[in-house]
């Protein structure tokens, strides 16, 4: 199935076109997030009115979110291992688990946003609100998209349309999912943790 799009001749490097594309896309996506993180960091401390990040961030709460997303990477990699062994039952379990963890993360983000809005941080309120919500919801959109893909594969697998030979699909979805996870590793540190209570503002 790998060479359908190439009108039937093997690739120069022997690598699959779609996998090369996925890594190139991830490289490109790094620059999307770098631009957003740049905006956030350059505007850090530049808001002329509050609320300010250290007043609203709840580090323990976000740590749990970060942990959930980290664990979804584990379940994702287990799903890939399962399909590569041809273990379709475990594939479905781990795909479902990954999607659920992703949904928990998204739910957590939604709840966090509503709490922030109650505390007066809004998209329009100040620079912090504008840059924070844009960055985190851009990431949230990535997670949402990933959940849609994983659920699609889950349904495909249930209907018997995802064979062991098509494990590359799961591998690519996994690459995307892990990338979204590492972006959160970065955001968790440079957005949340550096607002730590012991740093003088």
């Amino acid at each position: 199935m790998t060479t359908h799009e190439t009108a039937g001749h093997a690739t120069t490097t022997g690598l699959d076109n779609r996998k090369v594309m996925m890594w190139a896309f991830i490289g490109s996506d790094c620059l999307f997030f770098a631009s957003l993180v740049s905006t956030y960091l350059l505007y850090r401390g530049k808001s002329v009115v509050g609320p300010y990040p250290y007043e609203v961030f709840n580090i323990p709460y976000t740590s749990v979110s970060a942990f959930v997303l980290l664990m979804s990477s584990l379940t994702m990699v287990l799903a890939l291992g399962a399909i590569q062994r041809g273990d379709h039952t475990r594939l479905r379990i781990w795909l479902l688990a990954t999607s659920i963890l992703g949904c928990i993360f998204l739910g957590g983000q939604y709840f966090e946003f509503t709490v922030f809005v109650e505390q007066g941080v809004t998209l329009q309120g100040n620079l912090f609100g504008s840059s924070f919500f844009t960055l985190t919801s851009f990431h949230g959109l990535h997670v949402t998209f990933g959940v849609v893909i994983l659920m699609s594969f889950f349904v495909m697998s249930l209907r018997g349309r995802l064979s062991q030979e098509q494990s590359l699909n799961i591998e690519l979805a996994g690459l995307y999912w892990h990338f979204v996870d590492i972006v959160w590793i970065v955001i968790f540190t440079v957005v949340y943790l550096i607002e730590a209570p012991n740093i003088v503002h």
Binding site: T13, V20, C30, A34
Partner: peptide
């Protein structure tokens, strides 16, 4: 090749971030 593709995006991203800061 995959490392090259990923690293070039990542290094440029870090470079842009640091240069802007």
């Amino acid at each position: 090749l995959f490392t090259i593709l990923f690293a070039s995006g990542l290094i440029l991203a870090i470079y842009v971030l640091c240069a802007l800061m």
